[in-house]
Design a protein around this nucleic acid. Structure first.
Lengths: 247, 247
DNA sequence: GCATTTATGTGTTAAATAACATCTTTTGCC
DNA sequence: GGCAAAAGATGTTATTTAACACATAAATGC
């Protein structure tokens, strides 16, 4: 049935040409919690496009019209808002394999956030109109998005309070733990599975880059973490959690 | 068909007994964007309970198990989180007639927020299990919640950035405009249709009560607003918007 | 390989805002 | 009506954090 689709697809991300077999992408595409019938799945696969993004490349921008549901096949993505004076605030992150970029489409708005790749990423895109059609005749698919939106809203509310009420140390500790939650750790069970610039870390924690650097150094000096360039190793999670809770 | 339901329902809110005819509530209950069939509507009405809440009375608390979809029939409600040092942050507000209190249920969590009545309110409650059932066989109903959650998430993200990046004047200006958006104005077209304590205003704007009072006075002195006790009259919306944008 | 940009690190100063202390006014209650 | 409690108002001080100014190190492009 899918035999006809096993040709290679060439993905062009500006200067870099990456070759990925479409079948490899398909194998990774999650089935939306098993909500789709084989026919629906086929429909989606026929309309799906795949694109690769370079590190730091923008995926969509504030003001863009959302036309596709995005699925992060591999890589890591930040969703952020540009605030006062060009200062960015990361509001969410996505890890593979995860759907994103549908909120604006579902509320009939243009994007109010931007998205960019933390690291080289491959993204499948599905026309949002098709998803909308499927939702209207597949309650399980609708429920998938209800659930995901409800979870995201809970996190966003928590984030609002954490970022506004906690002091710098609390916010940074929280971000480190958030990154562990979101992207996991390496084989040693301690080193965060993502490398962020100090600036990204600051944008995640609502502080200036200088203060991110300073506070990170403090944590290292207190042996709460160990730093190796952009790699962060969590040495004392209990205390970080305490700092995060206390504000 | 609904004839049998036209008895009076007695609603007891602690010390106060309010008498409301159920039919009056029913007339106001929105039909979830027309998503319900007559049979589904009947099902909901049979299971629906109605309760009145006094001013400042708690509707649900952080940690409570969400068991019902809530519909604010009349009154005004705040949804808030208690943060560091007992300081509260209002994350959302609800106006009549509006559904709320479903986020936690949809993500299978206990409430992570609390809700309380800004003013005397009447709330209809519908078992969330029933709603869940209806969602699973009525995609239009599911879409209603997808849309509402998507809108709420967009607002929450915007709020995160506004509360973290703007300065006090910008945050207060924004809150005043937010209240106009949310609750509208009186017949004069200028006076906010809600009376908040200075403390609530502070909790909405992420600042101390002292600073809310001070900044409010400044705005009044600059003729941006006029204060009459808890009543706020917007005199110069354009400038407030500018202050809100500039941070 | 060298120049140029970009990222990181550190000290100093200035601004924003919370904390605190009072005082006054209003509200609720018996 | 009078008392107590809550809400509102205002001044002062202390703390937090941003802004700025450099310095150094690392990455990038030619």
């Amino acid at each position: 049935m899918l035999g006809a689709k096993q040709e290679k697809v060439y993905l062009c991300a500006v200067n870099v040409v990456i070759m990925i077999k479409k079948e490899d992408v398909l194998a990774k595409l999650p089935d939306l919690d098993g909500a789709l019938s084989p026919e629906e799945r086929e429909l989606i696969l026929n309309k799906m496009q795949v694109r690769a993004f370079r590190k730091n490349e923008t995926i969509y921008q504030e003001g863009d019209i959302p036309s596709h549901l995005l699925c992060l096949i591999s890589g890591k993505v930040k969703i952020y808002k540009d605030g006062v004076g060009g200062r960015a605030q990361i509001v969410r992150v996505a890890d593979a394999v995860e759907y994103f970029g549908y909120r604006a489409a579902f509320s009939d708005e243009n994007y109010v956030t931007a998205a960019a790749a933390f690291e080289p990423s491959v993204i499948a895109t599905i026309p949002i109109g098709l998803i909308r059609q499927l939702i209207m005749r597949n309650p399980q698919l609708a429920w998938f998005f209800v659930r995901r939106l409800a979870i995201a809203l809970g996190k966003s509310d928590a984030r609002t309070v954490n970022l506004t009420q906690k002091h710098i140390r609390g916010r940074l500790a929280e971000s480190i733990l958030f990154l562990k939650e979101s992207y996991g750790v390496e084989d040693d069970g301690q080193t965060l599975n993502i490398s962020l610039s100090r600036e990204d870390l600051a944008n995640l924690s609502n502080m200036t880059t200088s203060n991110a650097i300073r506070t990170l150094s403090s944590f290292a000096q207190e042996n709460l973490i160990a730093l190796n360039g952009r790699k962060i190793k969590i040495l004392n999670e209990a205390t970080l959690q305490k700092i995060s809770r206390m504000g």
